[in-house]
């Protein structure tokens, strides 16, 4: 009896352990921040953390879904760059062009994602290679379009990045809402369940006749869409799109996902873990700033966190 209940609780911790660890780390960081600076626990600073985390949150939300299927999307960084320059280039200061430009870059993100999925499905090339190649193509197109900052956004467009609804940063509210919606989608939509099934056992999914093509088209299109959405918030923040603005996002978008307990092998994890991962990374950078630790060291810490996270959560698959 005891043995069984122990095994149960063991399974529970195994299943949700990553979340506990991340929450624990979040608390630890918050305490540290509280100790090192009296400016840490202020409304202004918390708003600041929320604002800064928006773009990372959006792009890693899309990334989570591709990773859940056992894939990955390495084209998000270039997609963000391309969408950024197109958005501000097309708008070019004209308030009337904002809506069409947003529609265009969002549609483009979806289209690029569909192309990625099509290559994965029909060329049967690993997503890593497909999206790596796509990333290069998109970066090239971006640089053909402009080598420097392109166009500008009209006044007021920075509302997305700096505005408030109900006293909270607009972007953060949107991001959290999207995370909750996606979590509900993954749990309650059939397509959402199939994302897990395909990541869990791709061959089994095929034998069960689950719609792999449809699922992959959806997740890569979603990832492309989220990359474009990220670009919109970036442009709002900086006022202009730049051709390398997304470069770092390709790899940093993966950090919150794996820190949040989603396995690169697919099938296990979820977007709420990723959201915690996003806030962990943002809080970490914030606290390190208060500790007067330069951004160089922040990189080191981030890398170490990835190493620790993946080697803690990793599942021993070795049978022999």
């Amino acid at each position: 009896m005891t043995a069984i209940s122990q095994r149960r609780s063991g399974a529970f911790v195994r299943r949700n352990g990553s979340q506990f660890i991340v929450i624990g780390l979040l608390v630890l960081l918050a305490i540290t921040g509280f100790i090192v600076s009296d400016r840490f626990a202020t409304v202004a600073n918390i708003m600041n953390i929320l604002e800064q985390s928006v773009t990372l949150a959006l792009v890693s939300l899309g990334q989570t879904l591709t990773i859940l299927t056992g894939g990955i999307d390495l084209s998000v960084g270039s997609m963000i760059s391309l969408a950024s320059v197109l958005l501000s280039g097309i708008t070019n200061g004209d308030a009337n062009m904002v809506a069409p430009a947003i529609a265009i870059v969002l549609a483009l993100g979806i289209f690029v994602g569909l192309l990625n999925a099509a290559a994965v499905v029909w060329l049967r090339v690993h997503p890593l290679i497909v999206t790596l190649g796509m990333g290069a193509v998109l970066q090239g197109i971006t640089l053909l379009y402009t080598m420097g900052p392109a166009g500008k956004m009209p006044l007021g467009f920075d509302w997305l990045a700096f505005g408030r609804v109900l006293g909270l940063p607009v972007g953060a509210v949107i991001a959290v809402a999207l995370f909750l919606l996606t979590a509900a989608f993954l749990r309650y939509a059939r397509l959402g369940r199939y994302i897990y099934a395909i990541g869990d056992d791709a061959i089994g999914a095929k034998l069960m006749g689950l719609p792999r093509t449809k699922v992959l088209l959806f997740v890569y299109a979603f990832s492309g869409f989220m990359a474009s959405l990220t670009a919109i918030f970036l442009v709002s923040r900086f006022g202009v799109g730049q051709p390398y603005t997304g470069a770092n996002f390709t790899l940093t978008s993966i950090t919150p996902v794996v820190v949040g307990g989603t396995l690169l092998a697919g099938g296990r994890g979820g977007v709420l873990g990723t959201l915690l991962g996003v806030y962990l990374v943002s809080l970490l950078n914030n606290v390190l700033n208060f500790m007067d630790i330069s951004s160089h060291y922040q990189l080191i810490v981030q890398g170490l966190i990835v190493i620790i996270a993946v080697s803690v959560y990793v599942e021993k698959k070795r049978t022999l």
Binding site: A189, R193, D201, L207
Partner: peptide, 28 residues
Amino acid sequence: FVLFPHMTVAENIFIGNERRGLLGMVDH
């Protein structure tokens, strides 16, 4: 077997044939 190891028994039984309720959502 064709079973998804990290999904529940109930989900495995109904995969591809989900019990659905309101708005076509999976009724767990």
